[in-house]
Amino acid sequence: MKLSTYNFLTSMAIKGVKVGYPLKLTITKQNVVESEFNPVFIEKLLPKLDWAALYGAAQVAECAEDIPPAQPDNIADNEALLQKLHHLLFEIDVLEGQLECPETGRVFPITDGIPNMLLNEDEV
């Protein structure tokens, strides 16, 4: 699971959960997969990103020193930061770990790189 995917995952489908975001990320195994840097795409993606959630994920993935805690202005002009965002969003692959609903504590396991967001019938 890439952290760009993590940015969009919620536990909203659980009955009674209001926001279900951000999910608490735990990583027990991660990998780095190189991919082509596309600054235009990252700029386009920025409005859809939740900076606080990504900063949290960066800490868990141990690359927080690369990412400022608050979203700086004019990211488009900051190529170094765009590169770091690219690495964080598209190159870190979470292989094993879990996601925890901030409201209910329900745990969604990440196994072999796939987050299992499937709920039981009595949870929806």
């Binding site: 995952l9 909203m12 489908a13 082509e36 072999d112």
Partner: peptide, 30 residues
Amino acid sequence: VDTFRQNVLEMELPNVDCVRANVLQLPGSK
């Protein structure tokens, strides 16, 4: 999803993720 992941690894593709989820529960979320 297991076969999906296996395919992605064998073909050494970056930038592709698989999420195990019910498609019908996606609307209304992020």
